[in-house]
Computed example of a mutant assay.
Amino acid sequence: MRILITGTLGNIGSAVADYLITGGNKVLLGDISLTDLNERYPNQDCCYFDFTKAETFDDALDNVDRVFLMRPPHLGRPEDLEPFIQAMDDKKIQLVVFLSLMGVETNTRPPHHKIEKIIKSHQIPYSFLRPSFFMQNLSGVHSEEIRIKNEIFIPAGKSKCSFIDADDIGYAASVILHDADKHQNTAYTLTGPDSLNYYQVAEQMSQLFKRTITYKKPSILRFRQYMIHKRHLDKTYVNVMCALYLMTRLGAAEAVNDVFYQLTGRQPHTLKDFLIRESASFNQ
C-alpha cells in the first residue's frame, strides 16, 4: 500500500513528500496540476486531484492506506472537504494526518475546528497536526510588502507567535505517516523554539538584510480591506487570515513546547535559520 499526499506542490505537502520518498515509502502525489507534479517528481506516482471534483477521488485513493490531508487555502467552508472525507471512510483508510491549527480544539472560528469534528464523526483513524503560524507566511503572502515597502503588514498587534518552519511540519507528518499504528487518534501541537512578536521579527530581518524593516501593525479591518482591494486576494482566503490573526492577538499562538522534538528527535529550525535560507524571498 502507499500514502496519498494532497497539496504536494505547496510548502508543506512538498516537504512531506520529500521526507517520505527519502525514507523509502511508497507515495502517490496529488494536486491540481499533473504537469507540474510530473515535472517535479518524474520518478514518482502522481495523480490529478481536486477536492471539488469527486471524480478525481477514486484514482487518488487507489491502493492507498494512509493520507496526508491539507485544506486548500481557497476552500474556506469545512463542508467542502466532507465528500473526500466520506470517500476516505468508504476506502477504510488506516490513518489520515490532517494539517490543522494550533488552538482549534477550543477555538471554533477557523474551519479547521469543524474539519477535525467531521473526520472524527466518520471514525477514520486520525492524527491532527496543530502547528503554530508558518514561517513561510512571511516569505509567501506577506513578502511583497517586505520586499517593496520594507514593511511587515500584519494585524497581530503586540502579540507573540511561536513560528514554525513548514519543513519541520512536513518532517513531523512524515514521521507519523511512516509509523501509522503508533499515532492513531492523536493530536500534536507543534511550535518553533521561540515566541516572538513582529517587532522582534522586523529587528531580525533588519539585521540580516542590512536595511530597516518596520512592523506596521494595522487593524484587522484595514488589513482585510488592503488585502482584498489592493492585493486583490480571494475574499474567503482573506477572511480566514483575519480569523487566524484575531486568534494571534488573543494569545493563541504564543506558547512554546517541545512536542516536535519529542515526536521527531530533532530540534525545530529557528526563525533566523529560516530567514537566512529564504533570504531571496525578502530581497528585490
Score class of each variant (00 low, 15 high):
residue 221 L to I: 08
residue 199 Y to S: 06
residue 186 T to L: 06
residue 223 F to L: 08
residue 181 D to E: 15
residue 191 T to F: 09
residue 194 D to C: 02
residue 188 Y to F: 13
residue 212 T to P: 12
residue 181 D to P: 00
residue 211 R to I: 00
residue 223 F to K: 12
residue 183 H to Y: 15
residue 223 F to Q: 05
residue 188 Y to E: 07
residue 195 S to N: 03
residue 228 I to S: 01
residue 219 S to D: 14
residue 203 E to H: 05
residue 190 L to V: 11
residue 229 H to T: 13
residue 186 T to D: 08
residue 205 M to S: 02
residue 225 Q to C: 04
residue 210 K to D: 12
residue 219 S to H: 12
residue 210 K to H: 09
residue 228 I to Y: 01
residue 223 F to P: 10
residue 226 Y to M: 05
residue 222 R to K: 13
residue 182 K to A: 10
residue 218 P to C: 06
residue 192 G to W: 11
residue 200 Q to S: 05
residue 199 Y to I: 08
residue 187 A to Y: 14
residue 206 S to H: 09
residue 202 A to T: 12
residue 182 K to H: 07
residue 184 Q to A: 11
residue 196 L to S: 11
residue 216 K to G: 11
residue 199 Y to G: 04
residue 227 M to F: 07
residue 196 L to Q: 10
residue 219 S to W: 04
residue 213 I to N: 01
residue 214 T to R: 14
residue 193 P to R: 13
residue 215 Y to N: 06
residue 218 P to H: 07
residue 221 L to V: 10
residue 201 V to S: 06
residue 189 T to G: 13
residue 224 R to T: 15
residue 188 Y to I: 10
residue 210 K to Q: 13
residue 196 L to G: 05
residue 209 F to C: 02
residue 183 H to T: 04
residue 184 Q to R: 15
residue 212 T to R: 07
residue 200 Q to K: 04
residue 225 Q to G: 13
residue 186 T to Y: 04
residue 185 N to H: 13
residue 191 T to V: 12
residue 208 L to H: 03
residue 195 S to R: 01
residue 215 Y to F: 14
residue 195 S to H: 05
residue 208 L to A: 04
residue 197 N to M: 02
residue 206 S to K: 01
residue 187 A to V: 08
residue 194 D to M: 08
residue 181 D to C: 09
residue 218 P to G: 10
residue 211 R to H: 01
residue 187 A to I: 09
residue 212 T to H: 14
residue 213 I to M: 03
residue 208 L to N: 02
residue 209 F to K: 01
residue 189 T to W: 14
residue 210 K to C: 03
residue 226 Y to V: 04
residue 200 Q to D: 11
residue 202 A to K: 05
residue 205 M to K: 02
residue 229 H to A: 07
residue 186 T to H: 09
residue 229 H to N: 08
residue 204 Q to P: 07
residue 204 Q to C: 01
residue 190 L to F: 03
residue 217 K to I: 06
residue 230 K to W: 00
residue 197 N to Y: 01
residue 213 I to Q: 00
residue 224 R to W: 11
residue 224 R to N: 04
residue 186 T to A: 06
residue 209 F to P: 00
residue 224 R to L: 05
residue 201 V to R: 07
residue 209 F to E: 00
residue 195 S to V: 03
residue 193 P to C: 08
residue 224 R to F: 08
residue 223 F to Y: 14
residue 185 N to W: 06
residue 207 Q to V: 06
residue 190 L to E: 08
residue 211 R to F: 00
residue 220 I to S: 06
residue 220 I to G: 03
residue 202 A to I: 07
residue 230 K to R: 09
residue 212 T to Q: 11
residue 217 K to F: 06
residue 201 V to F: 13
residue 201 V to Y: 10
residue 191 T to D: 06
residue 205 M to Q: 03
residue 220 I to C: 03
residue 201 V to E: 13
residue 224 R to H: 11
residue 210 K to V: 02
residue 189 T to M: 14
residue 218 P to Q: 09
residue 223 F to V: 09
residue 183 H to D: 03
residue 186 T to Q: 13
residue 190 L to Y: 02
residue 207 Q to D: 09
residue 219 S to N: 10
residue 225 Q to K: 14
residue 221 L to E: 12
residue 221 L to M: 11
residue 228 I to P: 00
residue 203 E to T: 08
residue 213 I to S: 00
residue 228 I to W: 02
residue 190 L to M: 09
residue 226 Y to F: 12
